[in-house]
Computed example of a mutant assay.
Amino acid sequence: METHLEHDIILEDNVAYLRPLQAGDIENLIEFAENEPELYKYSSVPTTGRENLTNYIDQALQRKDTKTEYPFIIFDKRTNEYAGTTRFYDIQPNQKTLQLGYTWYGGRFHGTGLNKHCKFLLLQYAFETLQVERVEFRADNDNVRSIAAMKSIGCTVEGVMRNHIFRHDGTRRDTILLSILRDEWFNGVKENLLRKISN
């Protein structure tokens, strides 16, 4: 697995622009944290309000320093607005694997195709630049929207980890596990996703 994660990564196409998350980005995301609590219903990390969002960003940047995570802020070129955030995490260079998650967008960006553009850029980078063998995705098994989105980009469901972790409200969740493998990316997933974002 290549070591490009040690440098600033900029990913973009005609719709999406992803750059490294910074501490000052709280001002670009606070609107969502303060006004759209429903975005974080299924999150395992509290993100509503300024204090929680500050902690969320601080933790992401600390983990970036340890090279186990790489967080991005997402900008929608069509509306000229910051839209949300996502990251690579659980990065394991020796195993050539990583997870893709901690993804959320403001409500007005749902259903606009922005997520598919971002996922294409992130997956392309993971498989073609970092040369990983596997990208894993996880979600609350009750999060129907997120699971549908992952399946729509070509993820394969591997199973459900029962009573896996705490939600931020203290209840326990079942976690669904999905993935895309390197061979799958080059043998259909990439082409199908590219077709979807080109329509």
Rank of each mutant, 00 (worst) to 15 (best):
D65R: 13
Q59A: 08
V132H: 11
N141W: 10
A60G: 04
T79P: 02
V135W: 07
S152W: 09
F137T: 07
V132E: 15
G154W: 04
L61W: 06
I165A: 06
R63T: 14
T97Q: 13
G106D: 03
S146N: 06
G113T: 12
T85W: 00
K67P: 03
S152Q: 11
N55Q: 15
R87I: 00
G113E: 11
Y82I: 01
H117R: 11
A126K: 07
F75C: 00
H168D: 07
V144R: 06
K151A: 08
K67D: 10
K151M: 07
T79L: 04
D76I: 03
K77A: 04
E128M: 05
Y56K: 08
A60Q: 05
R87W: 02
N163I: 05
G107D: 01
Y102V: 01
D65W: 14
I73G: 01
R134M: 13
K64D: 06
F109R: 01
I165V: 08
G107P: 00
S146P: 05
D142I: 13
L130T: 01
Q95G: 04
R138M: 09
H168S: 04
G106V: 00
L98T: 02
Y56R: 10
F120N: 05
C155N: 07
H117T: 00
Y102F: 12
N80F: 07
F72Q: 06
T85K: 00
T66N: 13
K77R: 15
N141M: 09
Q92G: 05
